[in-house]
């Protein structure tokens, strides 16, 4: 059993997936009013995976890897506050923008204060991409009234997380790859729930957690690994693939709750794969295990 828990693949896939599902099961047992907090399962899955992989975080985090845990917890807290008290679209958007910028700055401040270089341009590009992604995910204008696209954002966020994991892996950091994988698996649980179970309305807490963790992971990869910035920027195009689906996929398929996540997932995989291939092409050292 302990061998299984120590397996990096299990730590970043099965453990967050099952933890997230378990928390959803618990919340589902609570009165209906509590179901709006099902999104907390994403945070729970991510934190359990982090604990199993890295242990408890230190009280005063000094390294970026430790800060990610605190960023996850703060994003969950922000999401909860937004969900309970302040649900106006403008507030959600502003809070997420601040969250994205602050998490990116907290991770990369040492490098950000360094003399101006191409890294700064890459950081701006990634930040702008994350901001646009947040706008896309939190904007209510692109939602259907019947909630058939409830899962779209989560599917894209999960695909992007997996692609970030691939980029991190090629940048020689398995720990960032595991964190990204854990985020994807935690999102996978709620996607599964909405796909084959009851389609619940997803509140801000579901979207805030991944939206604010992703820039932190991207800052970590950008500043502290050998990964190239262009594949990371390319990856963020995945958030706009939904628009392609709206334009080119027949309406009957778009309306199908079963087919829609598959279509959205498949289309968003195109920039994700392109990003991974580009990252591989930029590798400074031939990839091989050791």
């Amino acid at each position: 059993m302990s061998d299984l828990l120590m397996n990096p693949g299990v730590q970043s896939s099965l453990i967050p997936l099952l933890s997230s599902l378990a928390i959803m099961g618990l919340i589902r047992r609570l009165p209906t009013g509590a179901h709006q907090f099902l999104g907390l399962s994403v945070l729970a899955g991510f934190l359990v995976a982090s604990y199993v992989t890295f242990g408890l975080p230190v009280a005063v985090p000094v390294a970026s890897g430790q800060k990610i845990v605190y960023i996850a917890i703060i994003s969950g807290g922000l999401g909860l506050v937004a969900q309970i008290f302040l649900r106006s679209g403008r507030f959600l958007m502003l809070t997420s923008f601040f969250g994205i910028i602050l998490s990116f700055l907290w991770i990369g401040w040492k490098k950000i204060l360094a003399p101006v270089s191409i890294d700064h341009f890459g950081a701006l590009l990634i930040l702008a991409g994350c901001g646009l992604a947040a706008y896309k995910v939190l904007s209510v204008r692109h939602r259907n009234a019947d909630d058939t696209n409830n899962n779209d954002d989560l599917v894209v966020l999960a695909v992007v997380s997996i692609a970030i994991a691939l980029n991190a892996f090629m940048g020689d950091s398995a720990s960032i790859a595991q964190n990204s994988g854990a985020l994807a698996a935690s999102l996978g649980a709620i996607i599964l729930h909405n796909w084959i179970g009851i389609n619940v309305q997803l509140g801000p807490v579901t979207r805030f957690v991944p939206l604010i963790i992703l820039p932190a992971l991207l800052a970590q990869i950008h500043y502290f690994t050998k990964a190239n910035m262009w594949p990371l920027a390319l990856l963020l195009l995945a958030f706009f693939t939904g628009n392609l689906a709206h334009r080119f996929v027949p309406l009957s398929i778009q309306k199908s709750r079963f087919m829609r996540p598959i279509i959205i997932g498949s289309i968003s995989t195109i920039p994700a794969i392109a990003s991974a291939v580009m990252s591989w092409a930029f590798l400074p050292v031939a990839a091989s295990g050791y």
């Binding site: 390294a63 970026s64 020689d172 950091s173 502290f224 050292v285 050791y290």
Partner: peptide
């Protein structure tokens, strides 16, 4: 004595040399 392993040891998984 192995470039790939050294790159991994320099990453945030271990010595995190870009940060420290």
């Amino acid at each position: 004595n192995m470039a790939k392993r050294d790159a991994h040891l320099k990453s945030p998984d271990f010595f995190n040399v870009e940060e420290f």
